[in-house]
Computed example of a mutant assay.
Amino acid sequence: MADPIASRGYRADDLARRFELERVGDGDVVVDGVCALEPGRKHGLGFAETARQRDRVLASRASLVIVPRELADIDGPALLVSETPRLSFARVAAVFERPGPAPGIAESAIVAPTARVAASASVGANAVVGERAFLGEGVVIGAGSVIDDDVDIGTDTVIGTCVAIRAHTTIGARVRIGSGAVLGERGFGLVPGPAGLEPVPQLGGVRIADDVEIGANSTIDRGAIDDTVVRTGAKIDNQVHIAHNCVIGEHTVIAGCTGIAGSTQIGARCMIGGGVGIGDHVTIADGVIITAASQVPKDIAVEGVYSSTFRAMPARSWRKRLALFRVLDRIEARLKRVETKNGIAGDP
């Protein structure tokens, strides 16, 4: 059955059936977009995540609210009851996203004669598609993007504007790549020579699995020999750099401005905070959480939460602590002499 026309809204019953949610209240209520729970608005869809928001749901002017099971007894707006309200809201809200462009190739686009472009794909203005490239069903290539030779892009993947996908990159299905991203540039590999540093040939590719998201202006370098790999369901924020030969595990999340040096392997279901720096040839276990602005120069072998650096503090306090850091070696040596003189055993 075709979706209702978005401009005319969606009935509560239609949404309940589509997303397998329990509907409480008026099933004919129509919503035409999302809204905050407070104050809410007529024909708006809101959500409450916990039972503590009962009073906010009762006061909301939203026409339809997604709620947890504990709030299913509310006598107020129409409800959609979910065991995971935030996830359900994300899924339902997606129906209100702006529809994609119509299939077809813009007149100003350049598509190589050996490229294969599915009939349902869309290639935007001034985009370039190289030789032997493949664009699957429902693929969207934004205006001004460049898809090099021998690139393979899977079903329903959306490439933003001014994206560069270099040769020998493979992208799976339902991938989202933000504007300005660059995949498959040569990695930063250098070796000392008689006349200075010389570049190491980067002969690998990039492999992006299904359901990955890559944010705007992020960069993923191609491998030197083996491919750089981003596995299924990984989510990469804006302005993230992933160097050559890295492997990013399934469903790992990487926040903005993180830099990951070459040949690093990050496990599955990890959470990497913003502005994290990870050294080269580091291996990180599954399920690791690294808080924002941390530095990771060595392997992390055990699941857990890891942090480094200091929280912001008044500059005067920071300068006092910095002065102590500079004399820590002398303080340690003095403490050892005192312990030795008094027969006190220090830490091993």
Rank of each mutant, 00 (worst) to 15 (best):
E70Y: 11
K42S: 15
L58H: 12
F47H: 06
P297Y: 00
D221S: 07
A62K: 09
I331C: 02
G204W: 03
P103M: 09
R316D: 08
V276G: 06
L21F: 10
S307F: 09
K42G: 08
A16G: 10
R52T: 14
V140G: 05
G223K: 03
R91S: 07
D14M: 10
F96L: 02
V253D: 00
F134A: 04
A118Y: 04
G193T: 12
A12P: 04
D32A: 10
E198H: 14
A181D: 07
D26W: 10
S307Y: 07
R174H: 12
V240H: 04
R23K: 13
T155H: 11
I66Y: 11
E70I: 07
V29H: 04
V240D: 00
D13L: 14
D210L: 08
M271V: 15
A127L: 06
L324R: 13
E83A: 15
S218N: 10
W318Q: 14
F19H: 13
V111Q: 01
V282I: 13
V95D: 02
H241T: 05
T309Q: 06
A109T: 02
R54E: 15
D14Q: 12
Q53C: 08
P314A: 07
K336G: 00
S120V: 05
D210W: 05
R132W: 09
G274N: 10
V81C: 07
R330L: 12
A127G: 02
C35G: 12
I105E: 01
S60I: 12
T291L: 04
E83G: 13
T157G: 03
G180M: 03
K336F: 08
G172W: 11
I266V: 06
A323M: 12
I153C: 06
I300S: 05
V212C: 06
V146T: 11
A243K: 00
I344K: 09
P101L: 02
P201Y: 14
I110K: 04
R41A: 07
D73V: 04
L335G: 04
A173M: 05
S108Q: 01
T169D: 09
I110V: 15
G259A: 11
V240Q: 03
L64G: 09
R337D: 13
V95F: 06
G223H: 05
V123S: 01
E70G: 10
A59K: 15
G259P: 05
A121G: 03
A90G: 13
R8Q: 09
I242N: 01
L71K: 06
L335A: 15
I74T: 08
L80T: 02
V139M: 06
A181H: 04
R316H: 05
V206I: 10
R61E: 15
R337A: 09
L328K: 06
D156R: 11
R98W: 04
M1P: 09
N342Q: 14
L80K: 06
A12G: 14
V29L: 09
